[in-house]
Amino acid sequence: MTYVLKRLGALAAVLVVSSFIVFSGMYLAPGSPEQFLVQGRTVSPEVLASIRAQYGLDDPFLIRYWNWLMDVLQGDLGRSLLTQQDVSALVASRLPTTLFLAAFAAILITVLGVGLGVLAATRSGAFEKLVVFGSNLGFAVPTFFAALVLMFVFGSNLGWFPVSGSGEGFADRLWHLTLPAIALAFPGIAVVARITRTAVREEQGSEHVIMAIARGVPKQFVLWRHTIRNSMLPVTTVLGTNIAGLLASAFVIEYAFTLDGIGSLLVNSVQKKDFAVVQAIALIMVLAFGLINLIVDLLYAVIDPRVRLSKGAAAR
């Protein structure tokens, strides 16, 4: 329990510093903050005044940061510099697509990555070679390239799946997001499959597995209880980093498939230099990234008693 609190505290500290970096980043830009925020657009004096007010440009720097942080903590992410829309509302309307896409891809990575890795390790021969080859090449496939190829083959040519838009309702959304999720998951599947295969192979040669075989424990028990179960320990970490990375790489896929998630919103905002929106999304991504990593670490402590105990009571 203290471990959990400690980790939460560390996450909070990191988030505060990160928010400072995200906030102060724009002051690194050449020119005055005003110029940076307006970016040469012609704006009316009222809008300029509201920008000055939103960023508190008349206050000292730290006060500005403090006020901004307090607003953020209350869910007020400011207004878009272009459309004057409320950023929180904008992000909230875009978030479901991104979460759906990331969750879909996470499931694909877990099921296909771990599944292929285990199958490869337990069925030697051609299949294993194929998985090894595929994973060596697969991690090298950029998500956006996979996206284009999938769109070309299954979208334009075969017409099985739509190539843009994110759909309404669960089933339609699933259908719309299938190709994007596969493209997004592709490198992750390759990496996880490779790690899983190596982990299972290593576990197959471990002393306790050989001991279990020597004791006449039936094959299936040896396989599931000892080999696969234990090989999942290193896999969890890799799986976690890959899933945490999904949110950040999702924006390339959202852009390629013109989905209305926060990723494409981020890219568009960067292209249109709408820094208020960029800041907000960056913060959300850092938060999500940190949370997922934390969850993975805690999960690890749950499944491996050695971690659990060494972090808790100092038994030996």
Binding site: G245, F275, A282
Partner: peptide, 12 residues
Amino acid sequence: PNMLLAILAVAI
């Protein structure tokens, strides 16, 4: 995330 850092830098 690496990509986010790069995007932020480009935005700035």
